[in-house]
Design a protein around this nucleic acid. Sequence first.
DNA 1: GCCTACAGTCTACATTGTAGACAAGTTGCT
DNA 2: AGCAACTTGTCTACAATGTAGACTGTAGGC
Lengths: 237, 237
Amino acid sequence: MSPEANPAPPAATGKKKRLSREIVLSAALALVDAEGLDALTMRRLGQELGRDPMGLYRYAENRAALLDGVSELVLNELAIFPDDPDWQAQLRRIAHDLRLLALRHPNVVPLLVTRPLSTPLGLRPLGTLRPLEQILSLLIDAGFAPADALHVYRAYYGFLYGHILNELQEFIVDPDENEALLRLGLHRLPPKDFPHLRALAPVLVDYDGMAELDEGITILLSGLAARLSLPEAPAKL
Amino acid sequence: MSPEANPAPPAATGKKKRLSREIVLSAALALVDAEGLDALTMRRLGQELGRDPMGLYRYAENRAALLDGVSELVLNELAIFPDDPDWQAQLRRIAHDLRLLALRHPNVVPLLVTRPLSTPLGLRPLGTLRPLEQILSLLIDAGFAPADALHVYRAYYGFLYGHILNELQEFIVDPDENEALLRLGLHRLPPKDFPHLRALAPVLVDYDGMAELDEGITILLSGLAARLSLPEAPAKL
DNA sequence: GCCTACAGTCTACATTGTAGACAAGTTGCT
DNA sequence: AGCAACTTGTCTACAATGTAGACTGTAGGC
C-alpha cells in the first residue's frame, strides 16, 4: 500500500468540507465525551477531523482557548428563560437541567469548574457569562434588588456546582461494576479509621442525586426568600 | 567555570539530606503555591530540591500521584474535632477554616475539586477521606441517623465547595489592580447583552466572601435541621 | 572485609504544544 | 476572464514534558 493510502482513516464527517469553529469545537466535545480530557490533543483532534493539527490554530488560539470553547459549547445547551415570573420554579428547573447536562458530559465538568478560576470574570468567553446575566435578569425582573439578586445567584450557583461535583464524585462510569467496585474500594479502607464510611456503603450505592439536589434547592430557596424581602413569589414557609 | 559549577543553584534546604515523601510533597506544594500548577513539573521540582528529577519517582508513582499527595497535604491542614457536641458550630467553623485554607492555597483548589472526579471514592488517598469520615462521626455522635448524616454531609460539603469555587472565581490575585482589572474586564462586555452584570460592577468589587459563606451555612443548617429530626441542637428557627 | 538493598543519577525516547514558512484554494475587483 | 488579496490548510522543526531502564553509588548486616 502506498504511504498515502487513506487520508482520513477514522472519523471524517464529509469528504473534505471547509472547517469552522463550530465543527472543530463539536469534534473536540465529542472526543472529550468519548475518551476524556486527556484524549483531546491537537494531533488527535486533527486526526479526528482528517486535517493537519496545525490547522486548528485558525479556530482556537491555543489549547486553553479550545478548552474554553468546549466549556462554552456545553453551557450553551442550557436553556434559561429570564422572563419566567416564577423565579423559584425557574431556578429549580435550571438546576435540574444543569445536573443532567453534567451527567451527560461528565468529562467536561472539570473544565466548567476550573477554567473560570484561571480567567478574570470579565475576560471569560461570553457564552460562559450568559447564564449569570440571564439569572440576574430573572431575579431582578422578579423584584429583587440587583445586589440581592447577586447574593441569591451566588448562593444558588454555589450550591448547584457543589452538588454536581459531589454527585459526580460518587458516579462510577461503568454501571455494571458500580456496586462491586465501590464496595471493593471501600473494603480497602482500614476499618479502624473509617468505620462510618464503611458502614454507609449500602447507602452510598443508591445515591439519588436528583432528589438530593431538589431538597437542597428547596431549603436554599425558601431560606433565601425568607432572609431577603422577596417579591410576590409564593413562598410556603 | 566548570560544567559542574553549582550543583543546586536555586533553593536547596540543607546540603544534601536524604529525601522523604514529606519533603518532596512540601516542596511541591510550595512550588504550586508560588507559581501555579503548571510550574509543577518533575524537572522543576527536582531542580528545586537539588536532585535529579527521576529520583522523585521513588516517592510518587507518577505525576498524578504527586498531585494527589499535594491535595492530601493541604487537606491535612484542616482540623476537625469530631467530638464537639455542638455540631452546627463545628460545621460552621470547619467551613470558615476550609475557606481560609482555599484562600491560602488558591492554586491547589483545582486539585481538591477535580482529582476526586478521576478516582473512585474508595481509592482516594486516605488523607482525603479523613474529613468525610470525621464529619460523619461528628453528625452521628450528635444524634443523626447514619443515612441522614450522609445527607447532611453532602448538602453541607456541596455548598461549601460551591462557595469556595464561586469566591475564587472573583478573586483576583493582584489586589492593586483588582478594581481596575475587574471593571476593565466588564467594560469589554457588550452592554446590550450584559446590562445587569455591568451594572453590578461596584457590588462585585467588594465581595465579602466570609459573610456570604456564613449566611449560606446558616440557611442550610437550619433548613437541614428543620427537615430532619434533629437532636438536642439549639435551632433558632 | 563483602553482600544486599535501596537512593539517586544518567541516558534515551515518545508525546505534547506550537512557531514559522509555505502552498492551495477562495473571493472580490476590474 | 484575470489578477490580487486574503483565508485555509500543510509541512517542517523544536523545545518541553513524563517516564522507562540501566547504571552508580552508599549504608547497614554478617
